[in-house]
Simulated scan of single mutants.
Amino acid sequence: MVDRTVHLDSSVGYALKQAAAALRAAMDAALRPLDLTVPQYACLELLGQRPGLSTAELARGAFVTRQSMHGVLRGLEERGLLDRPASAPHGRALPTALTPAGADLLARASRAVAAVETRMLDGLTADRAARLRGDLAACVAALSPAG
């Protein structure tokens, strides 16, 4: 009989989940002084790199539901960090862009998150960090519907 039990001490998936939880906790702590959550930061970062993304695109990029992203966008807009038109220029999507205050907060948040990532990878050589990125990308590809 084949043993199909997942052994947590040797499970790659469990180690990955532990790493994700530790990263999330460290990001939460780094963003807290800026009064940002991880989904809010992700939204700002996505818009900083790709202005005009729709709510659905932002939700996918931030790994939250569309309903959750609506709340994130509303809160960021109320803080004056985003501009969204009252009506869609075409279709139903409201293109969203950072305000100058949003861009300033994003710059500070990006530095805080980069410091977390630097701390996370501190024990790895540049080659090992590159290998880790490649290995994780291969795992994502293997589990993707098209993979």
Rank of each mutant, 00 (worst) to 15 (best):
E57W: 00
L76Y: 00
P100L: 13
R24H: 06
S11W: 15
S54G: 14
E57L: 01
L73I: 11
G75R: 02
T55R: 06
R4A: 09
G48D: 14
R66D: 06
T99L: 08
A112E: 10
P89N: 12
T125D: 13
G13P: 05
Q40K: 00
S144W: 03
Y14H: 07
R24K: 05
L136V: 10
R84S: 08
R119C: 07
Q18A: 05
S68W: 08
A138V: 05
E117P: 01
K17M: 12
G123K: 15
V140K: 02
A146S: 06
P100H: 09
S68I: 02
F63K: 04
A146H: 04
A22H: 06
C43S: 06
D35M: 09
E77G: 02
L23G: 06
V72S: 00
E117N: 14
L8T: 06
R119P: 08
R108D: 05
E45L: 04
A107W: 09
P89I: 10
A137P: 05
M27C: 14
F63Y: 12
Q18F: 07
H70D: 09
A29K: 13
R66L: 11
P145R: 01
R84I: 10
A88R: 13
V113E: 03
A25H: 07
A142G: 10
K17D: 09
A103R: 14
A115R: 12
H90W: 13
R24W: 05
T5C: 08
L31S: 12
K17G: 06
S144Q: 09
